[in-house]
Write a protein that binds this DNA or RNA. Structure first.
Length: 775
DNA sequence: GCTCAGGGCATTTTT
DNA sequence: TGCCCTGAGC
């Protein structure tokens, strides 16, 4: 037997070696799914399949990269390189760029991220003179996204009575028009949003048989990871691509389908057997990750679900310790208990901090645990929040890159035409945009037609400024042709003045922004170097193709090691930790019920699966914690999982509506402070340095102005700002004594915004103020 | 371009 | 409860 096959159990091995025909691999939690996928590909290669004939689709870059690395180790890196392996979006954008002529897009089309889409939708709503309180950009965006993921084109949307009447019921009959206009403007900007990458691929294959054929023939083997998370659009593409050779292998776990809110269809995996009658099923049922106790508890949660593929996930690991319940009266106490458990375990059983994870349902819940961990000096990291690529300074610079590569990109243009400030105000941009829309073209084209078309519309001074901007971008375009990505990027960062602008800002934020830009440039340098080594194209254009599809989970830093992990259950999927705390069990784990909505059978089952996912992240110990009296389950401390689950099942009755008032009432009676979900949500604060929201920049600007007028300092010294409370008398280096009015955003990295009033002075907003508590 | 007040609002998230 | 956006006013 081949060496690598010895590392597999029997079912895994069968799933690996049965390479021909449709295969469905049901991979229970912790059952070695990645291992099967990678070995299967390695096996295909060993059997003589050409790497360029293998298509392997994943949902995240991280998954793709890990798999590629592992295959490289088994089959050789030179072979792994040529695999068509990547995320749905990256693979299809590659195909769309290759086939750009057929679909009528430039090959260098921009990929709009969600904030670009949202801002475009906002603009359209404004242009249509619709009320943006009725037409909420978020809602409109999700309707459009839903349509695209179900392959409903603007035309089909307009022609569907059901959809139109649903829109009417939501008092948004014009969504159809907005969708149409949105699609049009994307096209005029030479841009696609994330959903377009799938939708247009579908249309390409639907309308151009010869192209479909080409790819069908190319991809002799199609493999899909996390199949339960595919949406309709992805499902159809896969189906089409695999239709010729019929060698399709999908891997997934219906019990871990938790993404229906973003279009994932569990039906895709449940119906696989109907789509491919000659399929074979491989059930990976042995869990190698968790103790028996945890596996059994997790199983019993989803046992009542109707929609599922029957399986029997088991563990031969030790029985393990019972699942522990932490009950607390208040959320503060809950945080305290969790932190206490962690430090005890770390000291007593010599766990590393990285062995712990705290999982919650919503990001807003992280705060209390951050505070309690910080009090004990337990290092931690938070996932979720603003990604590196979403930060203002990064988006700004990337927008220059985008303009350089595709100047029709309106969203990028609007972002940077006056950043750094060059005296082109909103009014001017507005005029340009109106002109672009009425001429059915991009703002850039309007600009470059100056002064012929628009001479009358803007005054001479503005026109000069605009031409200056055009010249700048022109220069960058030439540069990008001649130089590699790094050279171009560096020059752009310098010549636009962005680098200098940030360098001059000595506030901590300015510093960190400057660092971020440096980091981005370093990344581009690495890209250029490795592209040269590999003989790949090394232009800015090529870098930009990748970067739109990257997220910050794609570059984890070493300094992030050995810290307790805080994240939502959703983002914990695919990860494992020795010790897992599932917190906020009292209600926040069940938002479908907390809103007072009736839980549907579907939502109920998904909530169960979510809990299943959470629990199966734990290898050795799991805790469930909750923080008020509303759901006090008697003496459940240190109970057995089954007892807990019985209790839980009572709550999981279909259609159960929470008695929102009773929680509050009982809390009042017992004189315990009750924190409602709304209140907790309200406490949401930017909780780490990675969460610099764009809108926070307004605050930052305020700081800068304060600083420039010599009225604020920028670092804390001495006292832990966490100890600073409203009402306290504090000493400020420059202003002397004053009273703290209000504090916002006490973050683990010791930053706070303090509203500060000194005698006879106006109220001051001090970010990162240098304060000393006066005792 | 800044400040201030008022009102609406508030899951889960990858690409 | 606080965040975030907007619009009025300077």
């Amino acid at each position: 037997m081949l060496d690598y096959l010895k590392e597999l159990n029997e079912v895994q091995r069968e799933a690996v070696v049965r390479t021909e025909g449709p295969s469905l691999v049901i991979a229970g939690a912790g059952s070695g799914k990645t291992r099967v996928l990678t070995y299967r590909i390695a096996h295909l290669l060993k059997q003589g399949a050409r790497p360029s004939n293998i298509l392997a689709l994943t949902f995240t870059n991280k998954a793709a990269r890990e798999m590629k690395d592992r295959i490289g180790r088994v089959a050789g890196e030179n072979v792994a390189r040529y695999l068509w392996m990547g995320t749905f979006h990256s693979i299809f954008s590659r195909i769309l760029r290759a086939e750009h002529e057929t679909i009528g897009y430039p090959s260098n089309f921009t990929i709009y991220d969600s904030s670009d889409s949202k801002s475009l939708i906002k603009t359209i709503i404004k242009d249509f003179q619709l009320d943006d309180k009725t037409y909420k950009p978020n809602v409109v965006a999700s309707r459009i996204s839903m349509a695209k993921n179900n392959l409903i084109t603007p035309m089909a949307y307009a022609n569907s009575p059901e959809i139109r009447s649903a829109d009417k019921n939501m008092r948004m009959p014009a969504i159809s028009e907005i969708y149409k206009e949105y699609a049009k403007r994307c096209r005029l900007s030479g841009s696609m949003d994330f959903d377009d990458l799938l939708l247009i691929t579908n249309l390409l294959f639907r309308d151009h048989e010869e192209i479909l054929k080409k790819y069908q023939e190319r991809f002799g083997y199609v493999l899909v990871d996390e199949y339960q998370d595919t949406n309709y659009s992805q499902y159809l593409i896969i189906k089409k691509l695999a239709a010729k050779h019929n060698n399709i292998c999908v891997v997934g776990d219906d019990a871990q389908s938790i993404y229906s809110f973003r279009g994932a269809r569990i039906e895709n995996i449940l119906n696989f057997k109907n789509d491919y009658p000659d399929h074979r099923v491989f059930k990976l049922e042995q869990n190698y990750r968790s103790t028996q106790t945890i596996v059994n508890a997790a199983n019993s949660i989803i046992a009542r679900n109707k929609k599922q593929i029957p399986k029997n996930v088991f563990s031969e690991n030790a029985l393990g310790k019972p699942i522990k319940i932490l009950s607390a009266l208040t959320d503060n106490e809950e945080g305290f208990l969790v932190a206490q458990e962690i430090s005890q375990l770390q000291l007593r059983d010599h766990y590393q901090f990285e062995d712990f994870a705290i999982l919650y349902r919503t990001n807003a819940q992280s705060r209390i645990f951050e505070e309690s961990l910080r009090k004990r000096n337990i290092p931690y990291k938070i996932y979720g929040g603003l990604s590196f690529y979403q930060r203002k300074e990064i988006k700004d610079l990337l927008s220059y890159f985008r303009m350089t590569i595709n100047p029709d990109d309106n969203e990028a243009l609007k972002r940077i035409i006056n950043y750094p400030a060059r005296g082109i105000g909103q009014t001017t941009v507005g005029k340009l945009e109106v002109s672009a829309v009425s001429n059915e073209t991009s703002i850039w084209r309007v600009l470059t037609a100056l002064p012929e078309i628009n001479h009358s519309q803007v005054n001479k001074g503005t026109a000069t400024k605009l031409m200056g901007f055009v010249a700048l971008i022109d220069r960058f375009q030439k540069l990008s042709q001649e130089s590699d990505a790094f050279e171009t990027a560096k020059t752009i960062a310098e010549q636009t003045g962005i680098l200098k602008d940030l360098y001059n800002d000595k506030s901590p934020e300015g510093l960190s922004r400057h660092e971020n830009i440096q980091e981005l440039l370093n990344g581009i340098q690495e890209f250029s170097i490795s592209a040269k080594e590999q003989g790949d194209p090394d232009k800015l254009e090529n870098y930009l193709e990748d970067v739109a599809l990257l997220t910050d989970q794609d570059n984890e830093k070493d300094e992030e090691k050995n810290k307790v992990t805080l994240m939502t259950v959703h983002s914990a999927k695919g990860l494992e930790f020795k010790n897992v705390f599932i917190v906020g069990m009292e209600e926040n784990l069940f938002p479908s019920q907390r809103q007072g909505e009736k839980a549907t059978q579907e939502s109920l089952e998904e909530e169960r699966r979510l809990f299943y996912v959470a629990l199966t992240r734990a290898e050795e110990n799991a805790w469930l914690s909750y923080a008020n009296q509303r759901y006090r389950w008697g003496n459940l401390d240190f109970c057995t999982p089954s007892r807990f689950l019985e209790e839980l099942d009572e709550r999981y009755t279909e259609g159960q509506v929470p008695t929102g008032v009773s929680g509050r009432a009982s809390a009042e009676q017992s004189n315990v402070s009750y924190s409602s979900p709304a209140q907790r949500f309200a406490q949401r604060q930017p909780s780490s340095s990675f969460k610099t929201r764009e809108s926070q920049n307004i605050l930052n600007k305020k700081l800068v102005s304060l600083k420039e007028s010599g009225r604020a300092q920028d670092t804390f010294q001495g006292d832990d700002p966490g100890k600073i409370q409203a009402g306290m008398t504090v000493q400020h280096q420059r202003f002397g004594e004053g009273k703290v009015l209000k504090i916002e955003g006490i973050a683990p990295d010791l930053k706070a915004t303090v509203f500060f009033r000194t005698t006879g002075q106006k109220q001051l907003l001090l970010k990162f103020a240098k304060l000393r508590i006066k005792s």
